[in-house]
Design a protein around this nucleic acid. Structure first.
Lengths: 188, 188
DNA sequence: ACACTCATGTAAGCTGTTACATGATTAA
DNA sequence: TTAATCATGTAACAGCTTACATGAGTGT
């Protein structure tokens, strides 16, 4: 097992790393970004919080609401921070959903600038690869031109954005320099 | 129950509507578009095919492979076409994943041009709404500027693409004309 | 000898949703 | 009084993946 992807778990842990929150707070946070990463239902959220407690990755501070249901404010523990760090350090799988990248944007931002850059570069590679494969599919041509064209448009836009952000980055220590893939033409 | 979303089912049905295919053919088709819609595993694909048979939405024609496992070529039935049509006619839910739209692009293309236009317009509305909501989130400002900016970039690019495709469309009978949302500024 | 493509399938499990249940407070 | 927001939670199920099992042919 060794613990695999388990996305929501770590996203919640990441939110707790930024500030202590209640389950409801977490829900509201997600609502604003629902399109990008979806917002979890109570059916997944609350069980996960309980699991985090059991594994001692988080603790609760119950504020006994006067006349109302007590607010349970969850905070991350040291063990939780470590677990999160481990998860953040491993690059997103190639087949990982867009969601996974946004999660890393969300968490790595404000945690470790160098890590953020690494994730951006990694994503750039993946998107470039996908773009190339789509271009191949386009050349082959089936009955699905529109869908392929749509994919090309989105992937291209994402590449442009990634390059923009990477360009503005304080550019510290380019860690590796070996690989130069460049199998893809990015439109100017 | 009334049968809900159940995406993969209808996507497979849609592929069978275009031409008869074996399970393996379907797999290969998906591989080329894996980034956009993911490619299903055997664990989901084959059970779905069996279910389609049971519900008589598809039929098999077994080609007894000489020396090799027989290829099972699945074809859509009339009942299947009808079920697919019903599903295609209902607009994608607002919270539906990107996947759902791509699926409609894939299926509506080559089935019914007017339907395609309707889906494109519908998607345009949704993306515009999401863009607006993201702009709101951006204005409010939390710790998540980068993620929001990313979302804005993608949504904007998609709007541009949608407008491009809609512009090139043979523009037949604009069915409704009431709603003019336009709460969003698309960069020129 | 090893691995990969073709071609089908099953069993167990994980992740998450839907729909429900509770209950107080505030706005139309 | 009806509904929405705040606030928590549970039970049942849907959907999909992982990992396995089988077996022939093809390529290195």
């Amino acid at each position: 097992m060794i613990a695999g992807t388990v996305s929501l778990r770590y996203l919640i842990l990441g939110l707790l790393a930024q500030r202590p929150m209640s389950g409801y707070d977490i829900k509201r946070f997600f609502k604003g970004l629902a399109w990008l990463i979806g917002s979890p239902s109570s059916g997944s959220l609350y069980p996960i919080l309980r699991a985090l407690l059991q594994q001692e990755l988080a603790t609760v501070h119950v504020i006994p609401g006067v006349d109302r249901p007590p607010r349970k404010i969850y905070s991350i523990t040291d063990a939780g921070s470590q677990a999160l760090q481990v998860w953040l350090d491993q690059p997103a799988a190639a087949n990982a959903p867009l969601k996974a990248f946004v999660m890393r944007l969300l968490l790595a931002d404000g945690l470790a600038p160098a890590l953020l850059a690494a994730h951006l570069r990694q994503r750039r590679k993946q998107v470039a690869a996908h773009l190339a494969s789509l271009q191949g599919t386009a050349a082959a041509g089936g009955g699905q031109q529109l869908a392929v064209d749509y994919g090309l448009a989105l992937a291209t836009a994402e590449l442009v954005w990634l390059d923009g952000v990477l360009g503005e980055l304080p550019e510290q220590s380019p860690p590796e320099r070996e690989e130069r893939i460049d199998g893809v033409t990015v439109p100017g």
